[in-house]
Design a protein around this nucleic acid. Structure first.
Lengths: 226, 226
DNA sequence: CTCATACTTCGACCATGGACGAAGCATTAA
DNA sequence: TTAATGCTTCGTCCATGGTCGAAGTATGAG
């Protein structure tokens, strides 16, 4: 890092997109693992590890080791308050910012986020299930309703198997590109698996892109109407 | 700029040392010209111009043209508040940051700041003159006392010529690397000129470094004791 | 008028640091 | 034990963007 006043060090830390996404994710107050943060930021584990080292070294985050996981949180609420302040500034000035085109349109449209569908189509899936009453928000949590349960069965997802796991069925995930919530958790993972099994889309190797076929996209859009 | 959340754009803006120095200087509330800000940041006018464009485009600063000057201020007090918040965070975490070695020790020790001496030796000059009663602070301004007047004459600076100019005799300048005040203004410039004329030091071409000779440094230290 | 100053734009260079592959260590599961 | 997972370290590559020289525009001074 170049020579400069201390304020620049903090700014540079927040200024990197990957780190900013990590910090944004941690604003929920939840402790997240390094792998989860890597997915949130859209980078590999190695890169995330380097970022998390820098954040911890600067005292913005804290990590505690638990088993073979490392859980990260914001160091304290002052960090949260500063991030909130900067976000407020960003939001107000946002409207007059230069047009921000996505680097890779395919990546923005549909990609894998850890193990579930993200991007615009991920947001659509979530919005659609919320609108149809299959999902229901309860504060920070998301609940699967009876209606949603039935929908999932019909869609071909085996819910009984999922229930045995310890992972939460539904988890909200803040979208990297769209800054909108989409569906993570066991159900989110299962739905993505089912979508690929149905042949609607396939994961491109060596990238996070999920490529929908033309017919697959049509089927997806009728299954998850807005 | 890369793709990323809005918060990263603000962070990256603050994260550059040159821009951080500019913003820090503007925290005084005074309107400063582009040239002054360039000197404050330790960059050339072109570079400063590019930075000021970005800051203005993002809505962090505002500039109004007056004659052939452009005066810049922070856009509003929310920007000031955010900067203050980030500074507070930087100050608290500062003590546990990794050892920040100056990239170029010579640059940190003595360099030219626009037209006067800056760096550790610039700070020393200022502190020494303040301690000996040659300078006196009066709010934001710095005054040259009778004692300081006599000292300057003895040191070989022609004060009469300086008085004819419109520039203030003494001006405080916030140090780029040390974050300490040092002496700018007509006197600051004249003192540096005299120091090089005496052969104590010489400007290195192609850099901002002021290289003191061993004997020159000794002479400087006895002329400006702490 | 000419000259000097303040600032901007253009172009090119290059250092910083973010990216990932490969390989390693540590912990847990089987 | 072996295998799998979570994470880190090392090494390398390369895009971003900060930097300045040169040249151009505008404003004011003499």
């Amino acid at each position: 890092m170049r020579e400069g006043p201390d304020i620049a060090r903090i700014g540079a830390l927040i200024g990197d997109p990957a780190r900013a996404n990590m910090l944004t994710a941690l604003m929920s107050g939840k402790a997240l693992t390094a792998t989860e943060l890597a997915a949130e930021a859209g980078v590999t584990a190695q890169t995330a590890s380097a970022h998390l080292s820098k954040l911890a070294e600067a005292g913005l985050t804290e990590g505690r080791k638990q088993g073979r996981h490392r859980y990260f949180t914001l160091a304290d609420d002052e960090v949260g308050a500063v991030l909130e302040a900067v976000m407020g500034l960003a939001a107000k000035r946002g409207h007059l910012r230069t047009r921000t085109g996505p680097k890779n349109p395919a990546l923005r449209e549909a990609r894998v986020c850890y193990n579930h569908l993200a991007g615009e189509m991920g947001v659509r899936l979530y919005d659609s299930m919320l609108a149809s009453g299959g999902l229901q928000t309860a504060g920070q949590d998301i609940l699967l309703t009876g209606k949603g349960d039935a929908f999932a069965c019909e869609f071909g997802v085996d819910l009984d198997n999922l229930n045995t796991t310890r992972r939460p069925m539904c988890r909200p995930c803040l979208d990297w590109s769209a800054r909108r919530t989409h569906l993570a958790g066991a159900l989110g993972q299962a739905l993505l698996t089912r979508i690929t099994d149905l042949g609607w889309a396939k994961r491109e190797p060596e990238s996070r892109i999920i490529a929908f076929s033309t017919s697959g996209k049509k089927a997806f859009e009728s299954a998850f109407p807005l």
